[in-house]
Design a protein around this nucleic acid. Sequence first.
RNA 1: GGCCCCUUAGUCUAGCGGUCAGGACACGGCCCUUUCACGGCUGUGACACGGGUUCGAAUCCCGUAGGGGUCACCA
Length: 475
Amino acid sequence: MTVRVRIAPSPTGDPHVGTAYIGLFNYAFAKKHGGKFILRIEDTDQTRSTKESEQMIYHSLKWVGLEWDEGPDKGGPHGPYRQSERLHHYKDAAHTLIERGEAYRCFCTAERLDELRTKQRAAGGRLGYDRHCRGLDNTQARASEPHVIRLKLPTEGKIVVQDKLRGAIEFDAAEIDDQVLLKTDGFPTYHLANVVDDHMMQITHVIRAEEWITSTPKHVQLYKSFGWQAPEFIHMPLLRNADKSKISKRKNPVSLNYYERAGFLPEAMLNYLALMGWTLPDQREKFPIKDMIEHFSFDRISLGGPVFDLAKLTWLNGLYLRELDDDRYLGVLRGHVLSDAYLKRVIPLVKERIDKLEDFASYAGFFFSGKVEHKVEELVAKGKTPAETKKTFELLGEEFDTIVRWEAKLLDERLRAFCEKNALKPKELFMPVRVAVTGRSATPGLFETMEVLGKEVCRTRLRDAIAVLAVVKPG
RNA sequence: GGCCCCUUAGUCUAGCGGUCAGGACACGGCCCUUUCACGGCUGUGACACGGGUUCGAAUCCCGUAGGGGUCACCA
């Protein structure tokens, strides 16, 4: 049996560091055993999936060097590899299940389900679908009405998940919801799509994040209902913020775009990610990924959720950077931080503001630097307190997270709307933001500057500014 | 809250019954150096707690505590 593993990101937003992390472990395992590493795009959420995001996933995965053997752009013997192009498979599968009595149509409205949950919450009991439609015998007749298809789970007994890292994990079948398989819009949920695809694509090992453990019994039941053999499950620990919560953009740069832009080398990135929960038998911390492949084994994975430590990644990156010869160094420098493409975007903003070329670097320095210095007194608008400013920045950070197209015109609109929503005058917001994202009070136009800096840099500097304000003593 | 997972220093980890509990990041000191970095040396610092099992537990078992995840027609 040849090893076949997959990484299955959903194209909703920026390419995530967690995708690279899980991708790496899949990749290392596949390469170790001469198997195949497959990329599958899980775009079954019609409202959130975007083509831009899908493109960024390809770009970032290639950047870190995780080349896939089969995928939407590459093809392969088990395509298509984009779930939105496989809808008929899921539909067929769901109907097969209905015919076998393993699934049923459910006509409950979103309102009824909301109501149900509200009641359950009030009663303090368990949340979950009450199987209202499970016993319906006229489901066939009503097939033309809007409905979802739900999986029938056993009402008693245990469902056992075999996790390669943790052994047997037992769940009471009665505790598990009759999961929706096919949504009203005819699209499958993750649960159905991933099982159908993993089976059809002959995936042998599912290496995914720990957050999936609790839905795995549903998948186990699905394989059983179909009469298919389930793959092996390997649930990796979750990357964490410093406070141990699941890594998130509120507390860390999580976009791979950021790391590429900031001038981290892909080999350092991968090396660092490999260190998160895994060790080489000889304990070396700096190693090329081919060494990981050579020595890879699941029993060297530790299960405590590792805190993603930017400081240590930075140290490791320095090691890699220092061993580059000057020509290669020039190459990576010109490839990212000082690329022609980036300089060409900075020039129009700086040109009219300086008179001698020698002033370029000092005027435009913040376009090229990582961290910028924040002075509290510059960060806080007249008449505002540091605490108020901190609060405003936190809200603004969340606003940033929802902005998909990071362009000056849109930023202008969004920030003005933000002022209105939060009862702020533009000048009470714009100067503090300027200082937060550039570290300076004299800069080119704020929105143009923000566009060129990019979302991730702005987000990171805003986060840093928040941290500076957080240590100010009130009064 | 129910269910599930996890638990060695601030952080990443080694350890798989007998070790002075080892390494790395960060932090402090010293050396190198015109400065700053790099580099070298060095220091502070950990087995969550309580019961067992055992001649002997960081290592095995059971509790407790803590942390995390999950409870969607999102993945």
